[in-house]
Amino acid sequence: MANGSTLPRRALGRQLRKLRERAGLTQSAASRVAEVSPQSYGRIEDGRQTKVTDLGLNALANAYEATDEERRLLLDLAREIREATASGSGWWRAYADAIVSGFDHYLALEEAANWVTNWQTTVVPGLLQTRDYRRALTWATNPDQSPEEVDRTLDLAARRQNFLGQSDFHFEALLTEATLRYNVGSPAVMADQVKRLLDHSDVPGIDIRIVPNAETRPIGLMSRSFVLFSFPPLHASKLQEPPVAFEEGFTGNLFVERPDEVSKYSREAERIRHVALSASASSDLMLRISKELQ
């Protein structure tokens, strides 16, 4: 899987923030040094897509009294960003008309990750959804969309699923049994969806485990659904990007990056694994549900 420019952008932003805070400068002061707007500089430190020049980075390194090694790291990260951008990362831009506001950031993290853990209490994760299951969800949440707009959304979802089965990508789905018993679309749609899960449970790099309805410990239910992204080291600098947690909300999405907060999601995922069925027992449960739906 290509890391794209997301990871080096995040690493560059983190390095710049560390140097700026050490120098005791504000973002406004830094933006004047780099000759960019305060908004643009803020986006740089946030790891968002913004043009970064070597001239501006050298000026910032001077202002931050960076060491030669720190300066080289900034310039190496900028070069890695340019190389990744030139290689054509960001496949989702072709589906800009089908992406809701802010979801491009999620897709960038998903593309960059080498391990994704998805805890779901209500719906099947997008990477494992069938087209008909996704269609039923889309019509329910966006009843005014035209058939053409819905098809674009479904095409985007299908394109995301190309990650599955790649040797450098691991997907862990932790699901409540309820996600398999909700009647999304129709019993036939659900039967196909459960079959999809069964088929993918044998694919290398994909783990699907179910928390059964009979489980009396409500671990995971209070935390709601969430996604954890973990990333490989950067190619050039070998910096290790810290993980990111994501929660999808009805009125807005939440990206969590503070280490102490992300660690809470990691601990919750570990607790959920303890109450989830084994992979084999999960497959047996899915098979029973599949037979019930036929």
Rank of each mutant, 00 (worst) to 15 (best):
P125N: 05
A178T: 07
T130I: 03
E177H: 11
N118E: 08
P143K: 08
Q129N: 08
T122Y: 06
V150A: 11
F171T: 05
Q166N: 14
A113C: 08
R135N: 13
N183V: 13
D144N: 14
V184K: 01
A136R: 04
T179L: 00
R181S: 00
A173V: 05
L137M: 10
L127R: 01
T121D: 12
T176V: 04
L174S: 04
L175V: 10
A158K: 14
W139T: 15
W119E: 02
Q120H: 10
R135Y: 06
G165A: 03
T122H: 15
P143G: 04
G126E: 05
V123K: 07
L137N: 09
V150H: 09
Q129D: 02
V124E: 02
L137C: 03
A157P: 02
L174C: 02
D151Y: 00
L164C: 14
L175E: 06
R131I: 03
T141C: 14
Q166K: 11
F169C: 04
A178E: 12
A113H: 04
D168P: 04
T141L: 14
E172D: 13
E172R: 15
S146V: 00
Y182T: 14
Q129W: 03
A136W: 01
T121L: 12
V150I: 15
L137W: 00
L127C: 08
A158C: 01
Q166I: 05
A140I: 08
E148T: 12
R135T: 10
A112Q: 11
L154G: 00
E177T: 08
N142Y: 10
R159T: 11
N183S: 11
A157E: 02
T179N: 01
T176F: 08
E177F: 09
R181K: 11
E148C: 11
T122P: 04
P125M: 01
N162M: 13
L175D: 01
D151M: 06
A136L: 02
A112C: 13
A178V: 11
T121F: 07
R135A: 12
R135C: 10
V123S: 07
A112S: 12
R135I: 09
E177M: 08
V124G: 00
S167M: 02
L180W: 06
S146T: 09
D155A: 13
W139E: 15
P143Y: 02
N142W: 10
P125K: 03
N114Y: 05
P125I: 07
L137I: 07
D132I: 03
N114I: 00
T176L: 10
L137A: 06
A178S: 06
R135L: 07
T130C: 03
R134N: 14
V123N: 09
Q161F: 04
A158F: 08
S146P: 01
D144P: 09
T138I: 09
N162A: 13
